[in-house]
Amino acid sequence: MTQSAVSVRAVTQHFTVEGQSTVALDAIDLEIPPGQFVALVGPSGCGKSTLLSLVAGLRLPTGGTLLCNGEPIVGPVPQRIGMIFQEANLLPWLTALENVAFPLKLRGVPKRERLEAARAMLELTGLGNFADRLPHQLSGGMKQRVSIGRGLVQDPGVLLLDEPFAALDEQTRMVLGDEVLRIWARTGKTVMFVTHNLSEAVYLADRIIVFSARPGRIVDDVPVDLPRPRTFSMMSSERFGALKDRIWAHIRDADH
């Protein structure tokens, strides 16, 4: 058996706010093989973002262990795990190029070298002509492309995306989804992709993890047996609909 890119073992996360304790994640087990594209879906507040922040090493779990390539995750290791947030969260005082280069700057990579790497990333995400723009001069979709470039610039093996397209319109969302698939196919990264959009989950993923309402547990683990490359017309196929129905049933039940 090959080693998992990401292992989540009996992970539990409690939050205590003003003496009141909530269980965000309850004994989660999840093994993600290298190169797999996993979508995470579930009702709001079930702990999807919390799980990503644990994998990113932004916090330590209340219980259980997380591993990346078999090594315990005890803090952010950006060379291995890149994170892309819902709001692009670009640094507004840096240009698109400098934003993409930012993780390299933190690592002390010399300026010329890091800007060169960042330029290549901007080309990859289709923003080569906008390198010198400030974030407020970019559209929402462009900002998210910059943010994806920033997530990719260190060539991490694992990419975490927390509802990256939630703030975008349907068309932009589709285009960027294809873009992510293209990059994924080229680079073979392991992807964890949180979304509320079931079509997006089915369209993108190899596998869909469905969470219950709080306390978050995994209620279904759905393999997506649609061929690749995925096409727009697949979205109206019977199989596509059946997969969506299966996931929707869980989410509908969870809310009541």
């Binding site: 952010p76 950006p78 994170m83 947030f85 709001e87 969260n89 640094l91 933190l106």
Partner: peptide, 14 residues
């Protein structure tokens, strides 16, 4: 100072 940006920096190893 936007808190999200602090999170971004931390996620990228700052």
């Amino acid at each position: 100072v936007p808190r999200e940006l602090v999170t971004v920096a931390r996620a990228y190893g700052a």
